[in-house]
Design a binder for these strands. Structure first.
Lengths: 348, 348
DNA sequence: TTGAAAGCGCTACCAT
DNA sequence: ATGGTAGCGCTTTCAA
């Protein structure tokens, strides 16, 4: 192992000077700096992170805590965070803590402690109180993405507003029987997101005088989840003409289900999502676009600022979701009657 | 900050004894051990990873390098690795290095150095030589998953065999016009996987005397990629009756495309995948099941063994993929003629 | 501008 | 079984 002492010796300077020259945070004669840098290079010198950490008190590591990495939204945020951290030369320590698993308990108990990381980005963590207590113990700045982050900074979209827009879009097209598909109380890392979106849907329905028609079909926020729920909803007697998916995955599942049932989208049923998932385009899905990678990047910016200056007050960054109209939605009066529906009488 | 000295003082012992009592790696009287543990607990003591690392030379951190985290296979391996590491109390440092990006270059140049991690798991890294040279510099054990890992341990399935099985399945059903869908030379982290799978397909075709019918439609290994490629392949004059998808994502894209074109799966075209993706069931996809989470776990086991005993020889773990027959495949003579096909004359 | 030396918090060796 | 102590490799005063 090559130490900074070796570099110093080769360059003919002291350890102190070598350190200064390499870190660049202090004045060193240009000539000596060059000599030191060359020496370091020729020896393939790499500083020991442990020693640096011990001496400076900084780990140059950022923790990222999230319920899962295998859903689109989370993977995108993670990639955004990663890209931003790499740019700053910081390491990313990942903790996947699916609610209700022993791993999550272990992570909260053993890993969320100070001195492992300079800061934490908590994605989609809807923590019960004792869990937040644990997070506090890391004694480093925390920034949340989605979820709830009492007393910390937060990056998120306005979920209520997004769902309201989606619902209003359907309503403006003349739809009256609009169902809200997906969302469950125990959904990992998204319970309050779903609550807010359902609220937005309800609000739009109520504003249109359709409060009595509010209908929620719960489902896991996945494509298969949306598929199964849509099979139920669309197979029922009182089939809706519009579906607001809690997210694109659910909406896509609904589209696939509709097609399997022989229904045309948007001919027989209009569907919207929220996300602008990578598959949204291929399904011509009308949706509200959010940019999870950008949220990841924003979280890093916020976090680094607070690490730099801990006195900074926690802030909330609310990004807006933009409506993207594709062709999974259609005006009700342009729609055709679905086979076997109760309006079969109007049919072709 | 509470140091081990504080714990020792409170417990009325020396730092040395406190350290022994807490790490448990040395004999300490049960009574004193208990006292120390209680003291540590009451003070909320957490050891400084930097200090431990400096003193022991172990970081208790494992690096994970992969091209992307947003494709199913990779996210699953990652979750498998994460779960296994948590169990051992090790931290996971994630590096997403998409080929061809500046981030990748930066990661290989600045992050892949010794003293940051005790070992590395490289997933789907098909490194050009200079990149592998860099990896060697971390001077710690490396285990590969998929990809190529010259001189290191590797965990993977036999891709050639898997594709051969898939192709043989179609062949056994009587299909003759079987096309291989997906795979591209520049596919991030999977070029050689795709090469091997294509080889398996070719081998099966050739063995069946269909060497002349071998046909490859390249596409990105994603659902939209498979969709687009399948639209082309199925829209062409010489439409195949069987499709071997390079992976489930491509196969699913093909199924969606077929349905959009008004073709029945498996009535008009049979489709197989490789993976057993989480959506496979919902699409009734016949596929070869591999367990990426298990591969992640296996990689951790292999890596920890080599960290424990560096003299251990690199080994290759080859997991087998199991054929799962669902209903995306059908015997050719049970199939129906597709609309607008060249066999339209036999049609209903 | 440079060098000497004192820690950072912990473990592990050597005593006892 | 326990305590004293010498580092681990780096940064950062303080002096020169």
């Amino acid at each position: 192992m090559v130490r900074i002492a070796d570099v110093a010796e080769l360059a003919g300077v002291s350890k102190a000077t070598a350190s200064r020259a390499l870190s660049g945070r202090d004045h060193v004669a240009e000539a000596t700096r060059k000599r030191v840098v060359e020496a370091a290079e020729s020896l393939q010198y790499a500083p020991s992170t442990a020693a640096v950490g011990l001496a400076t008190g900084r780990t140059r590591r950022i923790g990222v805590l999230m319920p899962t990495v295998s859903r689109w939204f989370f993977s995108q945020v993670l990639e955004g965070v990663q890209a931003a951290l790499v740019k700053h030369g910081l390491d990313l320590m990942l903790y996947c803590a699916l609610p209700g698993t022993p791993a999550r308990e272990r992570i909260f108990r053993d890993f969320m402690r100070r001195k492992r990381m300079d800061g934490l980005i908590a994605i989609g963590i809807e923590s019960s109180d004792p869990e937040w207590e644990r997070l506090r113990q890391i004694d480093a700045p925390i920034v949340g993405v989605v979820g709830t982050t009492p007393g910390s900074s937060l990056v998120a979209i306005d979920d209520t507003h997004a769902a309201m827009r989606a619902t209003e879009h359907l309503l403006a097209l003349g739809h009256r029987e609009v169902v809200f598909l997906g969302g469950e109380a125990r959904d990992p890392g998204a319970a309050n997101v779903h609550r807010d979106r359902f609220t937005g849907y309800t609000r739009a329905m109520t504003a249109a005088g359709l409060g009595a028609s509010v209908r929620h079909v719960p489902a896991p926020s996945t494509v298969p989840g949306g598929y199964a729920a849509a099979v139920d909803a669309l197979g029922s007697q009182d089939r809706p003409t519009g579906i607001v998916g809690v997210c694109d995955e659910v909406a896509i599942g609904a589209i696939i289900a509709a097609r399997r049932l022989g229904l045309l989208v948007p001919g027989h049923v209009s569907v919207t999502g929220i996300d602008d998932h990578e598959y949204a385009e291929m399904f011509s899905l009308t949706t509200l676009s959010q940019k999870p990678r950008a949220q990841g990047r924003a979280a890093v910016d916020l976090l680094l600022a607070r690490i730099e200056d801990p006195s900074l007050a926690p802030s909330t960054t609310s990004l807006k979701a933009r409506l993207i109209v594709r062709s999974s939605t259609l005006a009700l009066d342009a729609s055709v009657a679905a086979p076997g529906t109760r309006d079969g009488s109007h049919g072709p």
